[in-house]
Simulated assay, not measured.
Amino acid sequence: MSEKVFQVHVERLARSLGWSIYHTHDSRRSQPGYPDLHLWHPGHGQLFRELKTMKGKQSVEQLAVEKTLRAAGADVDVWRPSDLDGRILDELRGKLGA
């Protein structure tokens, strides 16, 4: 599954559960390494998620941003297509307390 198709699936699922999503559509003029998705749900917190194909690897910049976001207390991680079989839904629902 391509990263683009994967992202469509993730965004649909998140929105169906009431999450808002920010995605930089043209990253050429943005902070290098910023995660693909910033998700938030009023009263339920925020998620920063990098989306990768099954073989995709994070860049040096992505790893550095992840480290600083985590140090700041952010919930930051990587999701892959194999995570659609439960992990992503579990994390979105878990944030909702379900």
Rank of each mutant, 00 (worst) to 15 (best):
G45I: 03
L39V: 02
D75T: 03
F6E: 12
G33Q: 02
Q58S: 11
I88K: 01
A14S: 00
H44T: 08
F48K: 00
E11C: 09
H41N: 06
W40H: 10
G33N: 03
Q58E: 14
L13E: 07
D77R: 00
R29G: 07
G56V: 09
R87Y: 06
R80W: 11
L96H: 12
K95M: 02
D85M: 01
V60E: 06
Q7Y: 08
S2V: 11
S27R: 13
P42N: 13
R28P: 01
V5W: 14
G18W: 04
Q62N: 01
A14T: 04
S30Y: 07
M1F: 09
G97E: 14
V10P: 04
R80Y: 10
L69W: 06
D85W: 07
Q46W: 06
H25Q: 15
K67W: 09
M54S: 14
G73M: 08
D77G: 02
D90N: 14
T68E: 06
L17M: 09
Y34C: 01
A71W: 05
V10Q: 03
L63F: 06
G73L: 08
H41I: 02
H9R: 15
L37C: 01
P32S: 03
R12K: 15
L47P: 00
G86P: 04
T53E: 05
L39G: 01
Q62E: 09
K52S: 05
V76N: 01
D77K: 00
T53G: 11
R12I: 15
K55N: 15
Q7K: 15
R80P: 10
D26L: 09
H44R: 14
H41Y: 07
R12Q: 15
H38K: 05
Q62W: 00
K4P: 02
D36Y: 06
Q31C: 13
M1E: 11
H44G: 08
G73T: 04
Q58M: 15
D36F: 08
T68D: 07
P35E: 02
H9L: 14
R28H: 04
E66N: 12
L84M: 14
F48R: 00
P35S: 03
K55G: 14
A72E: 11
